[in-house]
Amino acid sequence: MPRISFPRRLCRPLIVLLAALALLLGAGAGPGWAAPDEGGSKKLRDALEAAAKGHIEATARLDNSKRRQKALTGRLKAVEVRLVELTAQVGEVAAQSYRLGRLTPIAALLDSTTPESFVRRAGELDVMAQRDGRRLRALAEARAEARTAKLAIDAEVREQQKQVVVLAKRKRDAERALAEVSSGTGSGFGGGSASARPAPRNSDGSWPSESCSVSDPTTSGCITPRTLHMLKQAQSAGYQRYVSCHRSGGGGEHPKGRACDFAAAKGGFANVSASGGDKAYGDSLATYLKSNAGRLGVMYVIWYRQIWMPNTGWRAYSGGGSPAADHTNHVHVSMY
């Protein structure tokens, strides 16, 4: 068989081209792969992000306020028990004074018949004064603590009422944002909903602020630690078909490392709407992400002409007609 030779000036570009093709085919994306064109305007994506983030933040503040109120209520109950005990003790002192009359310390000392009894009575009076003083101070402090706890509980109730108003506003914002792409309530999807391991939160229950700071295992870009956690949890739950997260340029969360696209087809992002087993795979994945949104920090999920947000539930979604824009060939998830 004759040996084929190439001019040396063509060898290096050819090697680079072959390496690139091998890398592309080895990634598991399948022939004809291309990053999905999500469709929708930047204005829409920004509005969805603002509405979802606002809802998540208000929910965290509401939950945190409820936890504080519960702790304060427990503290108030304990103080009220102490108040009953201290009030009874101070009542005993008052009753004793009433029965015996108002015996002044000077009169008690003058009633002593010997120097020894004088010293003994002086000591007894000092002990009684310290005891009664402690009881009165403890009663005053308990009353002040109870008043403080009640005021704090009232403040938490007002905070919760405020966050309920915020949540209602964020829901209206989401519905206005969806108006241009949604025709009404969606039906949702069936499928698995195993529990994911929760991503780390702040001590007050809120999500920590994160940047695109860790390597994206699906591309050469970067993603946030929370996005990486979501990706690993989804893969551990069995959703191991092709995924693409970071994407440079454009709007939305992909360039920020806060979004991933999960292909429905085994071969990658085919330019056709999923059906059969591929549709069932996407249904199950979308349900998994929705069910674990609170554990993972999911802002919204888009799949098969439907979008899920925490303040609206599943809604009908139209991205522009193509399988990529309507998300009928991949599941999109945006992270907080």
Rank of each mutant, 00 (worst) to 15 (best):
V166N: 06
L167E: 12
L167D: 08
R170G: 02
R170C: 04
R170V: 02
R170H: 07
K171M: 04
K171F: 00
R172P: 04
R172V: 02
D173Y: 03
D173W: 05
A174P: 05
A174E: 04
E175M: 10
L178K: 09
L178W: 04
V181P: 06
S183W: 00
S183E: 08
T185D: 04
S187T: 09
F189L: 00
F189E: 01
G190I: 00
G191W: 07
G191K: 03
G192R: 10
G192N: 00
G192F: 10
S193I: 01
A194R: 11
S195L: 08
S195N: 04
A196N: 08
A196R: 10
P198T: 03
A199E: 01
A199N: 05
A199R: 00
A199C: 01
A199I: 08
P200C: 00
N202W: 01
S203Y: 02
D204C: 00
D204E: 06
S206P: 01
S206I: 04
W207A: 02
P208I: 09
P208L: 06
P208V: 05
S209Q: 06
S209K: 10
E210F: 02
E210V: 08
S211L: 04
S211R: 12
S213F: 09
V214T: 11
V214R: 05
V214L: 07
V214Y: 03
D216R: 02
T218G: 03
T219F: 09
S220L: 13
G221N: 07
C222W: 02
P225Q: 06
R226W: 01
T227N: 10
H229N: 09
L231W: 08
K232T: 11
Q233H: 09
A234E: 02
Q235F: 06
S236I: 02
G238L: 01
Y239C: 01
Y239G: 07
R241M: 11
Y242E: 07
V243E: 05
V243A: 09
V243P: 03
S244A: 13
S244T: 13
S244E: 14
C245A: 13
C245Y: 07
H246F: 15
R247F: 04
R247I: 06
R247A: 09
G249F: 05
G251Y: 14
G251E: 07
G252H: 06
G252Y: 09
G252D: 02
G252A: 01
E253I: 05
E253M: 13
E253Q: 15
E253H: 13
H254P: 00
H254K: 11
P255M: 08
K256T: 09
G257I: 08
R258E: 11
R258I: 00
A259E: 08
C260V: 03
D261G: 10
F262L: 12
A263S: 15
A264W: 03
A264Y: 03
G267S: 15
G268V: 12
F269C: 07
F269K: 10
A270K: 14
A270G: 14
A270L: 15
N271A: 15
V272W: 14
V272C: 04
V272H: 15
A274N: 14
A274E: 14
S275K: 13
S275L: 06
G276F: 13
G277M: 07
D278K: 11
D278M: 12
A280P: 03
G282N: 11
D283Q: 14
D283V: 12
D283I: 12
S284V: 14
S284D: 14
L285C: 12
A286E: 13
T287H: 14
L289S: 14
L289F: 13
